[in-house]
Structure formats: C-alpha cells, structure tokens
Simulated assay, not measured.
Amino acid sequence: MKFRSFVDGLDGYSTIVLTALEDVTGDLELMAMGAANREDFKIAIDEAAAKTDNGLVPISARESVLEDIVLEKDEQLRIRVKLGHGAQYRLGVKNG
C-alpha cells in the first residue's frame, strides 16, 4: 500500500491518501513521525471520514487506529482525520 499525508490548512485536519497495490482489508495504525522518518509516538484520532463523491463517510477510529479499511487493487482512498487536542504531525503507518 502506498501512503502519504498532508495538513489541509488552518482547520486542524489532515488528509491521508492510501493507494492499494493489492486487495487489502484491515486496520491501519498511524504514528507521528519524528526525525529521520522514524516512528515517534502514537497519536489520538478524534474524527475520521473517507472523502467520497457524495461527501464524507465516517470511519471508525480507536486511539491511533483506523478500523476496517477495505481497498481493492489500484483503488485510492482519501481519509480526513482530526487528531486529539488539535495536534498536527507528520503521519506514518506503524510497522509490524
């Protein structure tokens, strides 16, 4: 899976873009990234929603985990997330 993220602006939300290299189903744990792109610490997700042509569709989140993500090969999914306390970090996917 390809992963990238960016901060949308002053509203405190970030966008995660996932692109599936094969069919995937499962949970996705996010981490804040520190120096040299190393996983630094877990984050708290307050809100998460998939961006669709029909608007935002809520995604279940527990602590730093986006739950029940389903993507087919070559499908791209944009997820809008708001982190706890309005925090903004460089985001990555937890390894292992």
Rank of each mutant, 00 (worst) to 15 (best):
M1V: 13
K2M: 04
F3A: 02
F3R: 09
R4L: 12
R4S: 13
S5F: 08
F6L: 07
F6G: 04
D8L: 15
D8Y: 09
D8P: 03
D8A: 11
G9V: 07
L10E: 15
G12P: 09
G12R: 09
G12N: 05
Y13N: 13
Y13D: 11
T15Y: 11
I16N: 01
V17N: 05
V17A: 06
L18C: 01
T19W: 03
L21C: 04
L21S: 14
L21G: 09
D23F: 06
D23E: 09
V24H: 05
V24R: 11
T25N: 14
D27K: 05
D27I: 03
E29L: 00
E29Y: 01
E29M: 03
E29V: 10
L30C: 10
M31N: 05
M31R: 14
M31H: 04
A32N: 01
M33P: 02
G34P: 02
G34T: 07
G34C: 02
A35Y: 14
A36Y: 13
A36Q: 12
N37E: 13
R38T: 12
E39T: 10
E39C: 07
E39I: 06
F41P: 04
F41M: 15
F41C: 14
K42D: 15
A44S: 13
A44H: 11
A44I: 15
I45S: 06
I45N: 08
I45Q: 04
D46F: 10
A48N: 08
A48D: 08
A49K: 07
K51L: 15
K51V: 14
D53L: 06
D53Q: 00
D53K: 07
N54H: 05
N54G: 01
L56R: 08
V57A: 13
V57S: 14
P58M: 08
P58L: 07
P58A: 11
I59A: 02
S60G: 01
A61R: 01
R62E: 12
S64M: 09
V65L: 05
V65D: 06
V65Q: 02
L66R: 00
E67G: 00
D68S: 13
D68F: 01
I69E: 00
V70N: 08
V70I: 08
V70Y: 07
V70G: 00
L71Q: 06
L71V: 00
E72N: 12
E75L: 05
Q76C: 06
Q76R: 14
Q76M: 13
R78N: 13
R78E: 15
R78A: 14
R78L: 13
R80L: 09
R80F: 01
R80S: 03
V81T: 08
K82S: 05
G84V: 07
G84R: 06
G84I: 03
H85A: 14
H85G: 07
G86P: 10
G86I: 09
G86L: 08
A87W: 05
L91W: 04
L91M: 14
G92D: 03
G92S: 10
G92N: 04
G92L: 06
G92K: 02
V93I: 15
V93N: 03
V93A: 12
K94Y: 00
K94H: 07
N95S: 15
G96L: 14
G96K: 12
